[in-house]
Amino acid sequence: MDAYDKGSDARQGLGRDGREGPPGPDDAAEQTGGSDGTEEASAPGETGETGKTGETVEVPEAREVPVAPSGPRTGFAALSPRYQVGAVAALVAVAVAVCAHIGLVFLHVAPSNTLTKEHGSAVDEWVFPEFEQNWKLFAPNPLQQNVAVQVRAEVGTADGGIRTTGWYDLSAEDGRAIDGNPLPSHTVQNELRRAWDFFVSSHDSEDRPVGLRGSLSETYLRRIALLRLDRNGAAGPGGVVERVQYRSRTTNVEPPPWSGEKVSDRPTYRELPWWSVTPERNDGNRDDGNRKDGARKDAGEGGAA
């Protein structure tokens, strides 16, 4: 901060010269504030808008007058030696805490290295859950593929039959909601996109869930599917969504024309197994979770189409 404060002193003059605005009221204001002794006299003399501006300006100036005399009474120098010990102790403690925090957060965002290999658990212990951070947005490389997440459903119809819907391109729906929108909602920009990332990161290449997060992500995707299918009226009158299936359609972004690079423009698909869902979204979660393994076996290897 040092630099700024000093700088501000040094530059005050510059700033004043360079600023815009009608000179009249401002100059008045400046004088008012500028000479501490006179402000009381000049303030009442001003009228209307100028008066207001003037007053606005004076107050802090006026406050500085008394500050000076009371200055010695605050801060470290005003403390008796006994209390100074306390202040130094606080200073040391805060300095240590600040350095430790910055160091640990640094190790958290740094690549795996000698120190994190040895003390990684201590770093995680401190950083999680509240100081977690990931700033690798578009790094090391920006995403170069459009991942469209699509879903379809098996609907139990009112007459007791089973009907399979077509694929709903949920990402395309999100894209349409974002297009031309200066303030895209997190519900269209992050919800499905991050849920899919969460699923991918918590499952192995065979679509098997890894740990707690794996099963959480499946339940989450199921619920998103139900929400979105419901919005699309997929079940139709009297119908009930019984099972859902996800797939992702990944298309390379065409490289810029000047790069001369060629990438395949054929989309690749990753199709997940059918998951059974219970119609009552709020009650059905836990059951869902328990039943999903069965459902997964039914569907076998979804694989990439």
Partner: peptide, 15 residues
């Protein structure tokens, strides 16, 4: 009030 104090005078900085 605290806002514009600054444009008032060059000596404001140290304060």
């Amino acid at each position: 009030a605290a806002v514009p104090g600054p444009r008032t005078e060059p000596g404001a900085g140290p304060g």
